[in-house]
């Protein structure tokens, strides 16, 4: 699926969040596309919760190994130095602080860092999979999401109305309009997407943001 220009820039900006040497889990959906913006020799260890560290490139069906998928079901490959393990070991890695960064999607993020991304009561409740532990235990949690939902309602809010995935877990939000940090219970606007005005972002955000003086960096 081809991404819109704004989404593509969001994903490219999010890729710069990954520092050399990190162990990283990219959630299903948009976060998976972040890997397309990393140089092939970039030193990073990608983890998938179904039991692998050292994810290599996604393979076309003709070259796929039926026993080698990521948590989203994509046929992946290994790299030199990959390791397989069972699901208990996989989540031991997550819960014990060995996962430096996770990138997740969101339905709602609150200014205190609460994340809701797994359940819409009465409409969508397929289960949370590994998302609960990724959100609660990764050392750094960043969210990739459109700034508003399809109806134009803000997804960055004073408080979440949906069931939480984890409380107070989000450190940074990348959207198609802005980069926003969560610090001390408030949203802090850090960067603006190209072609987006400060007024646009303020209007599309459901909570007050701390906005620095002067021009914001663009991405």
């Amino acid at each position: 699926m081809a991404l819109s220009d704004a989404r593509n820039r969001m994903v490219a900006r999010a890729a710069r969040e990954i520092e050399p040497g990190m162990v990283v889990n990219l959630g299903i959906g948009l976060p998976t596309k972040v890997v397309d913006h990393l140089a092939s020799d970039f030193p990073v260890c990608l983890h998938t919760e179904n039991g692998l560290t050292g994810i290599g490139p996604t393979l076309p069906y003709d070259e796929a190994n039926r026993n080698l998928i990521d948590a989203g079901g994509a046929y992946i490959s290994t790299v030199k130095g990959s390791a397989f393990f069972d699901s208990a070991v996989s989540f031991s890695l997550v819960r014990s602080g060995r996962l430096d960064l996770t990138m997740l999607g969101a339905f709602e993020v609150a200014q205190n860092g609460d994340l809701a991304n797994w359940k819409i009561p009465g409409k969508f409740s397929p289960g949370a999979g590994g998302g609960i532990e990724l959100a609660q235990k990764a050392r750094r949690v960043v969210v990739l999401t459109t700034h508003t939902d399809r109806a134009g309602n803000p997804k960055l809010l004073e408080t979440c109305s949906l069931p939480l995935t984890a409380p107070g877990c989000v450190n940074r939000i990348f959207t198609d309009m802005a980069v926003v940090d969560v610090e001390a219970g408030r949203f802090h606007l850090r960067e603006l997407a190209g072609g987006v005005s400060l007024e646009d972002v303020v209007k599309a955000t459901g909570a007050e943001m701390v906005i620095p003086d002067g021009d914001l960096p663009r991405f």
Binding site: S87, G127, E133
Partner: peptide
Amino acid sequence: EVEFCAQGMLAERVR
């Protein structure tokens, strides 16, 4: 009836 577990919790409960 469906009982949902966080994935690592299912693994650990089985373990």
